[in-house]
Nucleic acid binder design. Structure first.
Lengths: 129, 129
DNA sequence: CGGAATCCTGAGAGATACTG
DNA sequence: CAGTATCTCTCAGGATTCCG
């Protein structure tokens, strides 16, 4: 199976979906911290502002990475959840975590000692689809 | 092992290194097409221009992802190669490819049929460090 | 060949205030 | 609570030319 079977580059395509600032941070907080709500993201994502957060959430919903559900209570409640497609980004997320945990232990860990993803998240290598 | 051992987020840290436009494209061409030279990147990376390419290469060298070697011939020859650290980004690269190959087969493949990374690259899941 | 130097532009991000 | 509405502004990136 050769590279000739490609019409466009899958890496370029993926980058267009997740490459914008904060997109992976939102995915991270949904996948690893189980955050679901607007102000939760706003309060816990480094340096994000409501305008940008709103824009990212809309893009991600349009791309099918997340779902948006409105609960008509007072006060209103809106929850965002990862779709199965969004969950498939966890492989990228873990590889990203692994890279910094290996190469930047002093910045990443309080005690400065490197750890593996398996140690921290108790997870094994994500399958390649 | 809990999330409390983190000083800063490894995903955020990685994103700061590879999140800029074209960085992963350069890594891709080095890792998968064995490109090594300035004009090779310039000619084969979609929409890049010399100024941005130059900036990315410098950042990447400074970050220790690539090495720069000058061969004093006429005309001068300069080669860029992935360091071991740069090679450790291949796991992310493969996960990125896998995502689009699974979810966007019609955009990615000429025949529109999904393939796995294993089928295309004859490679198994990258290890998580 | 491998860039550096300019100049230019606009998308996108930041800050803040406001609203249903 | 979950967003809009402005308004400002920077700087990443594009286009082009030139240089050792």
């Amino acid at each position: 199976m050769s590279l000739n079977s490609f019409k466009c580059c899958p890496i370029d395509n993926t980058f267009k979906i997740i490459g914008k600032k904060f997109t992976m941070h939102i995915i991270r907080n949904m996948a690893m911290k189980e955050h679901t709500r607007f102000n939760q993201f706003l309060d816990h994502i480094e340096e994000i502002n409501p305008k940008t957060l709103s824009a990212r959430l809309k893009e991600m919903e349009k791309a099918g990475l997340i779902s948006r559900e409105v609960y008509d209570e007072t006060p209103i409640r809106v929850e965002y959840h990862l779709t199965n497609k969004g969950k498939d980004l966890q492989g990228i997320l873990l590889q990203m975590a692994a890279f910094s945990m290996k190469h930047y232990p002093k910045q990443v860990f309080k005690d400065g000692k490197a750890r593996t993803v398996k140690q921290v998240f108790n997870i094994s290598s994500p399958k390649l689809n």
